[in-house]
Write a protein that binds this DNA or RNA. Structure first.
Lengths: 163, 163
DNA sequence: TTGCTCCTCACGTCACGTGAGGTGGC
DNA sequence: TTGCTCCTCACGTCACGTGAGGTGGC
């Protein structure tokens, strides 16, 4: 079960298999290793990277944090769980801190999205009124006469598309 | 009220003032013009860009769509409201379509975020159990003995941070 | 006229994409 | 041994960041 380098590669995946499992590609994995974000568990004598299958979970977290707009450097810091316990691994407290920080980011983003959807709904409602009106806003003025007279501003999301 | 180029620049903003108003910077505005995403309403004889203040709404929509991960090219297409009415402006139908497409993207993202928060909550709960246990998962095995015995896998979000 | 703002190159950066040319592993 | 996978450069791209050197506008 050991190869000639003396390292047991059972249960480890070559980069291609790991990439398929994780839904990413070779270039990205090599780049993440360069940044110290996700390193292979070992290398063969010929330089082949070998990954633990459980590291797909780590990669998944990186991907989800990227969707929130964090840079890879910020992600590395957030996931590094800086304090290390007596066994060399992260402490319970540091892991909790990292998870709570992520939850805060998610909650903030949720609030933004809810606000944006509400604005879109308002814009669509107003657009329904516009459909029954014989005026159209134009880029140059951003108001139609009827709305201008009663002081109702055009919703921003309509202004964005009519100009 | 007209300058020597014969163009009325009243109510128009120079790029710096527009950038401040919109919460962006000069380079970004020039780049968006290059892509045809947001063009100044006019130029002075000396080449100065002049923007309509209402175009901050258009820029805001670009920024919100960027946060959803769309490329600038995809944003340009989504906001171009391709069909144009008899007055040269976009039609009610094309604007409605663009707004509804955005709402779908937002709804999808909301669903993802809700799922992620649920997973984080599960991980934090499990972590609370771990705090009362004298084993710690390690990168090499991803399981502690007690959990391995009763077949409960480590939540992915914990695996991500313990390995 | 002074000073602040604007202009156009043009090179740098981040997070990869995409070959080129060569070698490892079952 | 064959063929598929992997390796390391290294240049390209997207969405800007950041000067350099020069000009416009009230």
């Amino acid at each position: 079960m050991k190869n000639k380098t003396g390292f047991d590669h059972d249960h480890l995946l070559k980069i291609g298999d790991f990439a398929r499992l994780a839904g990413t590609n070779l270039r990205t994995l090599r780049y993440y290793e360069e940044l110290g974000l996700l390193c292979p568990a070992s290398r063969s004598a010929g330089g082949f990277r070998y990954y633990r299958s459980t590291d797909v979970n780590r990669l998944g977290m990186v991907q989800r944090l990227q969707e929130l707009g964090l840079t890879l450097e910020a992600i590395r810091e957030l996931m590094s769980a800086r304090e290390r316990g007596s066994n060399g691994g992260p402490t319970i407290a540091s892991v909790r801190h990292a998870l709570q920080a992520q939850d805060q980011l998610l909650a903030q983003r949720q609030a933004l999205l809810a606000g944006e959807r509400e604005r879109l709904a308002n814009a669509l409602e107003k657009l329904h009124e516009c459909a029954a009106c014989n005026h159209r806003p134009e880029a140059a003025n951003n108001f139609c006469e009827p709305c201008q007279l009663d002081g109702r501003a055009l919703p921003r999301d309509l202004s964005a598309l009519f100009s």
